[in-house]
């Protein structure tokens, strides 16, 4: 007769005394979106940072979120398509993670997840990414020597079985909301007037921002979609990449694949251009390796597909203008963001 096992003590030691965290950002970035049921705390953010950089979330413990979202690349990975645990390529370019707390309009290139919490659920079980299951990840976290205390410190749970995917993604979302970039030369020069722009920066700015221009035609008009302090309007657009006869013929339906609206086929998130210098290659499919290639694409004016954005129109682009625009685009680089100690791997 088998001897009865003593009950396993699942109680978590440690304390729950969370410290509220105030997100510091310039007023011009607007109001951060922080869900009432997931307020920022120092303990939650630190737990989220650890989960973000910990390969424990992948099936073979080889990949973490940071494998495809490297701080040095503004939390992207400089590959056309990221490589998952099984060596498979993902389907889209890894998006940079910057100023996410201010994004009101869904996450991923197609906006299929409404919140950062929902977004963080997906990569764990995507067979092209971390290829694990949340059931397994929860088991790993519950039996880990350190995480249970950190979950308790962040969320006040008492028992290890209370460690769930919902709390894990809340913590990751908290960390991601702290990823604020607002100290680029663009901020210093054009938003805070801490110094005068160089001639090239000023020329590039006049090419980028449409509104102050008195030029009637032939303007790049980047700011139609990438205007404002976030350098995006957070919309989804067909930016003229692909020439298709019918809207159903896009290889990647993008936004239309989410909402089943054919007029949204081929539309993708307008990404923020903050740190764009560091996030090559570009577009949802990483088809352009350089900023110059991106500018050449936009100057070509698209293909005239039915739902192609009306602001995609041809414009002349001299080599000097291209240089000036690239100089201006590089003012969006914020190394105090990419090198911020609070955003780095805590396991190194």
């Amino acid at each position: 007769m088998e001897k009865p096992q003593p009950p396993v003590d699942e109680t978590i030691s440690g304390v729950y005394d969370p410290t509220p965290f105030t997100l510091v950002a310039p007023q011009y970035l607007g109001q951060a979106i922080i869900p009432e049921d997931n307020p920022l705390t120092e303990e939650g953010i630190e737990l989220g940072r650890r989960l973000f950089f910990d390969p424990i979330l992948s099936v073979d413990s080889t990949q973490s979120c940071s494998s495809c979202h490297d701080p040095a690349a503004s939390f992207s990975d400089n590959r056309q398509f990221s490589i998952g645990v099984n060596g498979d390529k993902g389907l889209r370019n890894a998006m940079p993670l910057v100023n996410l707390a201010f994004n009101p309009n869904g996450f991923f290139w197609d906006g299929r997840r409404a919140s950062l919490e929902e977004q963080a659920l997906d990569p764990i079980e995507d067979h092209l990414e971390m290829a694990d299951t949340w059931e397994n990840v929860e088991r790993k976290l519950r039996r880990h020597p350190d995480y249970p205390q950190r979950f308790k410190a962040a969320f006040g749970i008492e028992q290890k079985p209370e460690i769930t995917r919902d709390l894990a993604v809340k913590a990751i979302a908290q960390f991601e909301r702290t990823l604020v970039s607002a100290n680029a030369e663009f901020d210093k020069v054009f938003l805070r007037a801490e110094r005068f722009p160089t001639d090239a920066e000023q020329r590039g700015k006049l090419l980028f921002f449409f509104e102050p221009s008195d030029i009637f035609d032939d303007h790049p008009g980047c700011s139609h979609c990438h205007g404002g302090q976030h350098l995006t309007d957070f919309s989804f657009r067909n930016n003229g990449l692909d020439d298709v006869e019918e809207l159903e013929n896009f290889e990647d339906l993008g936004r239309g694949g989410v909402n089943n609206n054919r007029f949204d086929n081929g539309k993708f998130r307008v990404p923020s251009l903050r740190n764009v210098e560091l996030t090559a290659p570009y577009m949802h499919d990483g088809r352009f390796e350089t900023l110059e290639e991106v500018l050449d694409h936009y100057a070509s004016g698209g293909h005239g597909v039915l739902n192609e954005d009306a602001n995609i129109r041809t414009f002349p682009l001299t080599e000097q203008q291209k240089l000036d625009l690239v100089v201006f685009l590089k003012t969006f680089t914020d190394t105090s963001f990419t090198q911020n100690p609070a955003f780095q791997n805590p396991f190194k």
Partner: peptide, 17 residues
């Protein structure tokens, strides 16, 4: 930036900074 998300004047694309 002066308005909360969802406000008619909060959409960046309708503003010339």
């Amino acid at each position: 930036a002066d308005y909360p998300v969802g406000h008619p004047l909060a959409f960046q694309g309708n503003y010339w900074s």
